[in-house]
């Protein structure tokens, strides 16, 4: 199971434009940031996508945030690791099973408050939502039955309560004309 304290959770609002992911990935690659997971999707504002990044804490998370914030397409970004957040991940796990042991699997699914979303004579697909630890634990239990495949979304996170991060508009600033003598 992953130790949650070793990871930073960063949330970003980015322009929903072609090439944005390329710009962000380019920064990671260039600066050597190791990204544990990345989840991207629409935000509540049209034209803005929201990302949740999980970064190994061996990195200077401050630099990750600041370097990404330099991108014009990154509208807002913050490290929420030390804030009061809810964080969830979803996984789909396809498990080998037959009439004989299906009920065992259903039992596990119930304990974890997960769902079975597809059943075939030889397999089921389990949908589970929770923190990484819960998904890891469930995966460990299901492994004995034979996991055919698994897909995980990566962490998504949000501040608890009414707090939200909004971009601020500021006036631009033009420099002074040049100085020709000391």
């Amino acid at each position: 199971m992953k130790d949650q304290r070793r990871y930073h959770t960063i949330i970003a609002l980015v322009e929903d434009r072609p090439g944005v992911l390329n710009r962000i990935a380019s920064k990671w690659r260039q600066r050597g940031f190791n990204i544990e997971s990345l989840a991207v999707g629409h935000s509540e504002t049209p034209g803005l996508s929201r990302m949740t990044l999980v970064v190994d804490a061996s990195h200077d998370a401050d630099q990750v945030v600041k370097q990404l914030d330099k991108l014009i397409d990154v509208v807002d970004i913050r490290d929420v690791s030390n804030e009061d957040i809810v964080a969830r991940e979803m996984a789909l796990i396809k498990v080998r099973c037959d009439a004989g042991n299906r009920s065992h699997i259903i039992e596990i699914v119930d304990i974890f408050r997960a769902n079975i979303i597809d059943v075939s004579p030889e397999s089921v697909i389990v949908e589970v939502t929770g923190d990484e630890g819960k998904i890891d634990a469930m995966f460990e239990l299901l492994k004995d039955y034979g996991v055919i495949e698994m897909v995980r979304t990566g962490r998504v996170a949000m501040l608890r309560g009414a707090a939200a991060s909004h971009p601020i508009e500021e006036e631009g600033y033009e420099r002074y004309p040049g100085q020709e003598t000391w």
């Binding site: 990154v74 509208v75 807002d76 971009p167 508009e169």
Partner: peptide, 12 residues
Amino acid sequence: ERVELRGYRPPI
């Protein structure tokens, strides 16, 4: 008339 870039706010 003006530039509007919500992701670019250089500190002053």
